[in-house]
């Protein structure tokens, strides 16, 4: 049973159709690359999957249960098994530690010591050890992007939704994040990676879905979309000294 399944998903705003008839599924431990030009509907699809917006048509099944159109309590329960990193992440007006621990505190299941430990591990995973006390809003765009990733990773989500996660990063930082994401493959976390960076998608994704004009125009294994010899030559998860926090 796939972790996530979307069936005939559509989203309209007024008379404009943003997404039409999307059918997709994602398995645990899989990285699904979502590629397409700007305005093709990648962000809209991620927001629908994260249950931030309501679909106009179709349904979303998470772990076998239909979650779209359910009461807020059920949406929240499903949302708490996911995490999303936005294309332009924003920081709360607080220190890095409060930003990274935000989701954990919302769940309120862990004591302060355990939260601190997990924050530390998540920051180490994105290469920002020692940033706990920094004012999050004084960081560079690239650092904010990594904090946003740490903020998602610390939750140990079953489904990780990434919207251009390396768009603001320099090549070296982007490569380290790619390594980190690659290490998720085969684990319990499924990843949907929206990007218009073909190289990144080719390197990381097991399967690729191509969105154009709000429609799924191609969908298949990475080798089928890009060709077999082009598949990942990426380095392992520890190449840059980063490792997952779990």
């Amino acid at each position: 049973m796939p972790l996530l399944e979307v069936r005939s998903l559509g989203k309209s705003i007024g008379s404009a159709e943003i997404l039409t008839g999307i059918n997709l599924s994602v398995e645990r431990g899989e990285i699904l690359g979502l590629i397409g030009p700007t305005g093709s509907g990648k962000t809209t699809l991620l927001r629908l999957v994260n249950l931030l917006d309501e679909p106009s048509t179709g349904s979303i099944l998470f772990d076998g249960r239909e979650v779209s159109g359910q009461p807020e309590r059920e949406l929240l329960a499903a949302r708490r098994k996911m995490a999303m990193v936005f294309q332009k992440p924003v920081m709360f007006k607080a220190r890095v530690e409060e930003n990274v621990s935000f989701g954990l505190k919302m769940r309120g299941k862990e004591d302060a010591k355990s939260v601190r430990k997990r924050v530390k591990e998540a920051l180490a995973a994105v290469g920002l050890s020692g940033y706990e006390s920094r004012d999050a809003n004084t960081l560079s765009g690239g650092e904010m992007q990594r904090i946003a990733l740490a903020r998602a990773l610390v939750l140990q989500p079953e489904l990780l939704l990434l919207d251009e996660p390396t768009a603001n990063l320099d090549p070296r930082s982007a490569a380290s994040i790619d390594s980190l994401l690659q290490s998720l493959a085969g684990g319990r976390t499924a990843v949907i990676l929206a990007t218009h960076n073909m190289q990144q998608c080719r390197k990381l994704a097991n399967r690729v879905a191509v969105l154009q004009g709000g429609k799924l125009t191609a969908h298949g294994k990475s080798e089928e979309i890009f060709g077999p010899e082009e598949k990942s030559k990426a380095s392992g998860p520890h190449t840059y000294g980063f490792s997952l926090p779990w």
Partner: peptide, 8 residues
């Protein structure tokens, strides 16, 4: 959006 996405 960020707060909701993080489970608030």
């Amino acid at each position: 959006d960020t707060a909701r996405s993080l489970g608030a």
